[in-house]
Design a protein around this nucleic acid. Structure first.
Length: 496
RNA sequence: GGUGACGUGACCGAGUGGCUAGGUAGAGGUCUGCAAAACCUCCUACGGCGGUUCGAAUCCGCCCGUCACCUCCA
């Protein structure tokens, strides 16, 4: 069964066909690095991490691009001076690029904790000013942009005459005009309120600025993704992802820029949007008090949650909902996810035991076939627009079967070693390679060691020297030597 | 006002025109020195009102309610 994906552009699921098979190009809109990443920032990267992992599992060489936005966006169109990055830099008395680097580093660390593989290319907007200027020049040449007072704006009505603007988000230019009437004030530079900036003239106090044919300034909000995706993935590539909130205006503008500059393509063939996360039923916001940064989430109580939740629990929790559905985080939901996650991980350990006791004989054909069919289910559900909740359900079904087999040697023999091995491999592959869930060891080595030493001391006191020798040898295998001192039993790392 | 999504059992969350989602929690049981795990059985469902249909929780209409986007936002 081929992989089907839901395309926001067509509002339908369709079998996935790479533009240049077997290679697949994926672009995900990355973070603007001016503050700590929060729970909501985790969903897109996790979803598209599973997507790229699955594409690779299916044998596609994937080029996964996730940008870092380090040219801060303006707070609003009317505000020419307040740039998010510069604002953060001023508040922290730092160079803007220092702020960007700081949060980019933290972002990468958080993504690694969440089990997201690093992108193949992680381009930064500030390093691609040349490409962005080149793209603006093309758009101007094609008549879809105009210069005004050192800034360049995309001419939405003009573009709309040739290509429909608003296809992705299903909006019409006329409707938007009706809806934005009140906002007309103070937008004198723009010919139409929907026009968006490709290049902004820098006010004197603006720090981040670059020379351009239109004077000193900086690129507009939406341009970097068009320029960088084109550079690294081509004028038409396979999959463009992002949060639902980016659909309009960001992605709509990207399509317009790509169509208007070069290629008469929609930039990407498939547009995928992950839905949002709410916390205790409401959108995260600082004023509601349910805003949760990833740092706080992983470390302790935050934003209406009573305790810390580990990165893998969060990942499992996110995968338990379909990526196009909204998901609500709460203590109840996360605690249930934690137990489910641990159950799945305990399954991985069970596989090792099963493999050790697997029968060599082929088993009964029907039983073997049945086990293989059960083991094929998780991937089948992933084929259906990445249905991770169903895939997880199928994994739990499979795990139940493993548990049953582990307790019943007769049934184990019926299934046969070959089918068992294949089923175990399927479980392990989907859980770890595709869903990216790994075991988070929780046992405290120091405490376990203290326990072993207490048994040692007890055995010694009982003069049970056979037991004493066993404990000492086992610890030595772990590189730990026991030291009997007058003060009591101590330990040290072996110097051998 | 425009666009889109949604309302499923104690909680989270899939799915489907008739056939078990799954996880968590709860009840009983098997196993067990005790416990845990595991397994078996059970429990509470599809917002309301109409319509289409042999049959709808699943399709259509209306109503009620919730959320998101339309300004930066994952």
């Amino acid at each position: 069964m081929p992989l089907s994906l839901y395309n926001t552009l067509t509002r339908a699921k369709a079998p996935f066909q790479p533009v240049r098979p077997p290679v697949v190009g994926v672009y995900l809109c990355g973070p603007t690095v001016y503050s700590e990443a929060h729970l909501g920032n985790a969903r897109g990267p996790v979803v598209f991490d599973v997507l790229t992992r699955y594409l690779r599992h299916l044998g596609h060489p994937v080029r996964y691009v996730r940008n870092i936005t380090d040219v801060g966006h303006l707070e609003s169109d009317a505000d020419t001076g307040e740039d998010k990055l510069e604002k953060a830099a001023r508040a922290q008395r730092l160079e803007p690029m220092q702020v960007a680097q700081h949060y980019a580093n933290r972002y990468r660390a958080h993504m690694a904790q969440l089990g997201c593989l690093p992108p193949d290319i992680e381009p930064q907007a500030s390093g691609h000013i040349t490409e962005q200027i080149g793209m603006i020049e093309e758009i101007v040449q094609n008549g879809f942009a105009y210069e005004a007072n050192g800034s360049v704006y995309f001419d939405v009505p003009r573009y709309d005459e040739h290509h429909r603007y608003g296809r992705l988000s299903n909006r019409s230019v006329a409707d938007q005009l009706a809806g934005t009437r009140e906002a007309l004030a103070g937008q004198d530079e723009k010919r139409s309120p929907q026009d968006f900036a490709l290049w902004k003239r820098a006010a004197p106090e603006h720090i981040m600025r670059w020379p351009s044919p239109w004077g000193e300034g900086f690129p507009g909000w939406h341009l970097e993704c068009s320029a960088m995706s084109r550079k690294y993935l081509g004028a038409e590539f396979d999959i463009h992802g992002g949060g639902l909130d980016l659909m309009f205006p960001h992605h709509e503008c990207e399509i317009a820029q790509s169509q208007g500059s070069h290629s008469h393509t929609d930039e990407a063939r498939v547009w995928m949007h992950n839905n949002m996360i709410t916390v205790n039923g409401a959108k995260m916001s600082k004023s509601v008090g349910n805003f949760i940064t990833l740092t706080d989430l992983f470390a302790g109580p935050a934003g209406g949650l009573s305790q810390a939740y580990s990165p893998m629990v969060v990942r499992f929790f996110l995968l338990q909902a379909h990526y196009r559905s909204p998901v609500d985080a709460s203590d109840d939901a996360l605690q249930a996810a934690r137990k489910g996650y641990r159950k799945l991980m305990n399954g991985l350990r069970l596989l090792d035991k099963l493999a050790a006791g697997a029968p060599a004989a082929p088993g009964r054909p029907e039983a073997a076939a049945e086990l293989r069919a059960l083991a094929a289910k998780p991937a089948e559900f992933l084929d259906d627009d990445l249905n991770t909740p169903r895939a997880l359900a199928a994994l739990f079904d499979l795990l139940k079967r493993f548990n049953t087999l582990a307790a019943a040697p007769a049934a184990l023999a019926e299934a046969g070693g070959e089918a068992l091995g294949a089923a175990a491999a399927a479980y392990r592959t989907v859980v770890t390679d595709v869903l990216g869930l790994r075991d988070e060891p929780r046992a405290n080595a120091e405490e376990l060691l203290a326990l072993a030493l207490s048994f040692y001391a007890e055995a010694k006191a009982d003069k049970a020297y056979a037991k004493v020798d066993v404990i000492r040898a086992a610890l030595k295998d772990q590189g730990i030597v026991i030291k009997d001192t007058k003060a009591g039993v101590e330990w040290a790392y072996s110097e051998e």
